[in-house]
């Protein structure tokens, strides 16, 4: 519970943070600190330098323009959960943010820190994959020069606690299309009783024409090293009139998309999690479409 000695540096801008990162191979960025600090206290992480980016104004802010919701990387879970803009633009994100951790975690933890940490059991990565979010990443070279890139959520996560972020890059913002009135979304999870982290999490975003699904984006996480897009499920949903039978039949196809790398632990085996993926996804789609599932 007592971290090893480290140097603390506060960055006042993204470029300063990148500079500090580039100068120190043993440095770690800290936004809200809710992933990094616990690891440091358990001495599982021992960075020589902690670069605090928590006060950088340009990483703040939630806006919606031209059908794109833009969320600054330092936006806290509480800010997401309290934002009418997020509620009206990306309901699934709004609801999921409210279910993360407890008030202290939501008040300190940030969306950027969360996804950069890439914990397989985290909720937001799965939701952002289903929302087809784009991650804006800033590297060395400054904001006006080439050094900025955009990566799709599905490509951002490369494994457990692993992303495409290079050592001197910072995630600055997350963008996603604003959901239209006929687009419905829901995140369902089996939560670990100790932490409320996802044992299995499932996100569904469906576009409806009457009772018929025209577009579907689904993803599952928690059971895989990084979120998995459920393409077999999506194909089965599109063109279907959604009801108990069609949803269950489609959700069951998630098994085809999962691959063989399934997480298992003392609470829930890989076999069990695999079986639960379809069930949680079924719940997510049912709730997204407003159908009662019993």
């Amino acid at each position: 519970m007592f971290a090893t000695e480290f140097e603390y540096k506060k960055a006042n801008s993204v470029s300063e943070a990148i500079q500090l990162l580039s100068n120190d191979a043993d440095a770690k960025l800290m936004a809200g600190g809710h992933s990094l600090i616990p690891l440091m206290k358990l001495r599982l992480a021992r960075p020589g330098t902690v670069i605090d980016i928590g006060g950088i104004a340009e990483l703040q802010g939630i806006t919606a323009n031209n059908g794109i919701l833009r969320i600054g990387a330092l936006t806290t879970h509480a800010q997401l959960a309290e934002s009418p803009l997020v509620r009206d633009s990306a309901r699934i994100l709004w609801e999921t943010a409210y279910g993360i951790g407890d008030p202290q975690v939501r008040n300190r933890g940030t969306i950027g820190g969360n996804v950069s940490h890439a914990d397989p059991a985290s909720d937001l990565p799965t939701v952002l994959v289903a929302m087809d979010a784009k991650f804006t990443i800033q590297g060395q070279g400054g904001i006006t020069r080439r050094g900025s890139r955009t990566v799709a959520a599905a490509d951002f996560f490369t494994g457990a606690f692993s992303t495409v972020l290079a050592e001197n890059e910072i995630l600055t913002a997350i963008e996603m299309p604003v959901l239209a009135a006929n687009q419905h979304s829901e995140y369902a999870k089996m939560a670990h009783p100790a932490t409320s982290y996802a044992v299995v999490g499932a996100a569904a975003v469906v576009t409806m024409d009457g009772n018929t699904c025209t577009v579907a984006r689904v993803a599952v996480g928690g059971l895989t090293p990084s979120p998995v897009r459920g393409q077999s499920v999506e194909q089965a949903l599109v063109g279907q009139e959604l009801n108990a039978e069609t949803i269950a039949a489609a959700a069951n196809l998630i098994d085809n998309d999962l691959g063989s790398d399934i997480i298992g632990d003392i609470f829930a085996s890989a076999e069990y999690r695999r079986a639960m993926a379809a069930i949680e996804l079924k719940h997510a789609i049912f709730h997204a479409t407003g159908l009662a599932h019993h």
Binding site: L42, H192, P193, A194, T195, Y197, I266, F267
Partner: peptide
């Protein structure tokens, strides 16, 4: 509390031991 066969406590923190 869950121990493995070597007597290692696997539920040694609040993240694994559910209250």
């Amino acid at each position: 509390a869950v121990y493995d066969d070597n007597g290692q406590l696997l539920t040694g923190s609040m993240t694994d031991y559910a209250l």
